Amino acid sequence: MPRQFFVGGNFKMNGSVDTIKGIVSHLNDAKVDSNTEVVIAPPALYLLLTREHLRSGIEVAAQNVFDKPNGAFTGEISVAQLKDSNITWTLLGHSERRVVLQESDSFVASKTKAALDGGLGVILCIGESLEQREAGKTIDVVTAQLSAVAKEVKDWSKIVIAYEPIWAIGTGKVATKEQAQEVHAAIREWLGKEVSSEAADNTRIIYGGSVSEKNCRELAQEKDIDGFLVGGASLKPAFVDIINARQ
C-alpha cells in the first residue's frame, strides 16, 4: 500500500478566538483531497475550541506534551488530558523548542514514548542548522535525533517524521526538491537499518521549512516526500492548496 499523504499545520503562537474560528470554518467548507490526512496544531489555549468546531476527518494536534502523568508539573499538559479532550496527535522536537528551550534529544525521545504509550500520534520534528549543513553534518544530526527515539520506541507506526532544516523555517528559504529528497531518502535508509524494513516502507517522512502553495507541488513529486508540516502558510487560505498538492 502506498503511504498516505500527510499535511500538518503548525499555528505556533498565533491566533485568537476569532481567527481560529475563521481558519476552521474555511477548512470545514474547503474541498480537500480525501486521500490526504490533515492535522492542525493550534496553541494549547485553543485546542478545545478547534476540536469543537472542526469537522470530523481532520484531526487536532497539541504543539507539545509532557512525558510524565498528571501531577505537580506547572504549565504542562499530559497525554491523558489530551486524550480526554479528543486531541489525537502532538508535535514533538520542533527546532524552536530544541534551540530556544534547550530540549535534548533524550527528552524529546522520552516525550515521544509517553505520547505513543498513551495512544497519541506523534509528528516528530528533526533538522539541522545552517552551520551543520555547511559542515556536511546533516545526516549525522538527523540520524542522532532519530536514534534517541529508537532507544525508547520500537513501534513507529504512529510516528510521522517531519524533516525541517532549521535554516529554512520561517526564513523564506526552501530546501530544493533535490536537497529535501536526499535527506528523506537517507532517513528512510536509516529506518530500514536501525528499526525495520516495515518502518522504512510505511513511515511517512514529511518536509517542513517555508512550504507554500508556490513550491508544494514540485516537492510533493519526490518519491520520499510524503507530505508537509506547514507553519505560517497554515494560517492562510492557501493552506488548502498545500493539502491538495498531490491532486
Rank of each mutant, 00 (worst) to 15 (best):
S34V: 07
S104K: 04
K137E: 12
H94P: 11
L48K: 10
F66T: 04
H94Q: 13
G71C: 02
L101S: 07
T112M: 08
P69E: 02
F73N: 04
E128I: 15
L82S: 01
G71E: 01
K31P: 10
L27S: 09
K21A: 09
K21D: 13
T50A: 05
S110M: 06
A80R: 15
V60I: 12
T88A: 05
W89A: 06
E128N: 13
T74L: 04
T50G: 00
K83T: 05
I87P: 00
L54N: 08
L82Q: 02
G127P: 05
V122H: 01
K113Y: 05
N28S: 13
A62L: 01
G57H: 15
T36A: 14
S95L: 14
K137R: 15
T74A: 02
E37V: 15
E134R: 12
A114H: 02
V108I: 15
T138R: 11
G127A: 14
V99L: 07
L116P: 02
L116S: 05
A80P: 02
D117R: 10
G71W: 10
V24C: 02
T90A: 03
D105Q: 11
L101R: 07
G71L: 06
D29R: 14
I87D: 00
L91A: 03
G75M: 06
L91H: 04
D67K: 11
S25C: 13
N28L: 12
I123R: 03
L92F: 10
E37Q: 13
L54E: 06
S56H: 14
I58K: 02
G118M: 07
F107E: 11
D33Q: 13
L82F: 01
I20Q: 01
P42D: 09
T138W: 14
G75K: 02
I23N: 13
C125A: 10
L91Y: 03
H94A: 08
V99I: 09
Q81F: 03
A115N: 02
A80L: 12
I77H: 01
H26L: 11
K113F: 11
N64D: 09
A114P: 15
P42W: 06
G22Y: 06
V38T: 05
V60D: 00
S95C: 14
T88Q: 11
P69G: 09
Q132I: 15
V65G: 03
L120Y: 01
K68G: 00
I77D: 06
L47H: 00
G22E: 14
V122A: 10
F107L: 15
A109T: 09
A115C: 08
L27F: 13
N35Y: 11
E96K: 05
L82N: 01
L124T: 10
Q63R: 04
H26G: 11
V122D: 12
D67A: 10
A109F: 08
S95E: 12
E59A: 12
N35L: 03
G127E: 00
V60E: 11
T112L: 10
L54V: 09
G75P: 05
N70G: 06
F66M: 05
D84I: 07
G71M: 05
D140V: 12
Q132G: 14
